[in-house]
Design a protein around this nucleic acid. Structure first.
Lengths: 204, 204
DNA sequence: GTCTATACTTCGATAGAC
DNA sequence: GTCTATCGAAGTATAGAC
């Protein structure tokens, strides 16, 4: 146990480059391809630098996840604070890169204990943030919380967005448009038709 | 290219043992832990046997997937032919092992082209089978196909079952019971309350 | 027909040079 | 503070012995 091992600084350019490379690799080829050698090659650096900046591969995955999670929580809070929080949330959940990353990190968490705990904690915090914004909104709209509890609506929306993204990645398409239409009809009922905003629908 | 490489017979006991070991490993530790060495160790055999019986790891994954897919299609047809096909389908989708395997194979397909095609083809076939059984059922019940098309109901059910299973694997629980309750209220409306059957609810 | 001996590649990780 | 030289373990796969 060499606990006093040296480690790179947080604001190093090489460190950021390694994280960027790892992110791209994860999106393009899956987490199993995120090896120290491939990450380094993609960043134009030597493989040993990965271990200098992150010590272990688990540390790299955690750093990557945290960087994304922080950005996500901010963007997410913005979305929920918009004039159409439900529509904004829906657009957010349907971002292809986000869904793909979600699947990868979930699969990764399946066999890396240290990462699982962190991901689960973040995901629950995320859902809480959604719920806190949604409950008053749905209540004010007179939605019957007995028939469709806000948290259930949340899980349904997330589930559809995630599964459709996953299946599209596989090349499937049956039922996707119809499922999206059902969700969007619900959103329209609650929040009115989607008003055009800066960001286009990322599904296209 | 040694195309004339020898290969083990389909009905070999060792071959079956390797597939069983691979299945367990995949469920317990994820697809990335399904390596020739680990599979062989679990089966009490030598690593080289994996390549004797399956040539490449992709071949092993494909054989594993096909074996499961065949069994699944049979059980699935049975479920859809029961007196409460929707409830049976729901129970089927909520089998923990099935959901876990689904996620693993999806993640695997994300970066193994040869496997992706096979999985996508099977999944679409599966959904078609569901749809053929469901459409007449919902029509006979007077469900408005404009409001909730059968294929959308299908995607919603599948999505909830999958995502809840995935999140539970991570240790999450927020909203799961509520989402399940919403689906089950819908099933009750269409098909009446679930009648007790041989198999218990696998969610417990 | 079934399995073993073996090759070669890539992996994560550390110690030590600049 | 940053990077290089190097190691032992684990990965897939093949050729050849029984």
């Amino acid at each position: 146990m060499t606990a006093d091992r040296r480690i790179g600084t947080e604001d190093s350019a090489s460190r950021a480059a390694l994280l960027d490379a790892a992110l791209l690799l994860m999106l393009e080829e899956g987490y199993a391809s995120v090896t120290s050698r491939k990450v380094a090659a993609r960043a134009g650096l030597k493989p040993q630098l990965v271990h200098y900046y992150f010590r272990t591969m688990d540390d790299l995955f955690l750093a990557l996840f945290r960087r994304g999670a922080e950005r996500n929580l901010e963007r997410h809070a913005e979305a929920l604070a918009s004039d159409q929080p439900l529509w904004a949330l829906w657009a957010f959940s349907n971002e292809p890169a986000g869904s793909a990353l979600n699947i990868e990190f979930s699969a990764l968490a399946n066999h890396r204990k240290a990462i699982r705990a962190e991901i689960a904690a973040y995901a629950e915090r995320f859902r809480r943030q959604q719920l806190d914004a949604l409950e008053p909104l749905l209540a004010s709209r007179g939605i019957d919380p007995e028939r469709l509890p806000p948290v259930a609506a949340l899980v349904l929306m997330t589930a559809v967005a995630q599964i459709v993204a996953l299946e599209q990645g596989l090349g499937m398409s049956v039922g996707h448009a119809e499922a999206h239409a059902v969700v969007e009809r619900y959103l329209t009922e609650v929040e009115g038709p989607r008003r055009e905003r800066a960001a286009p629908d990322p599904r296209d």
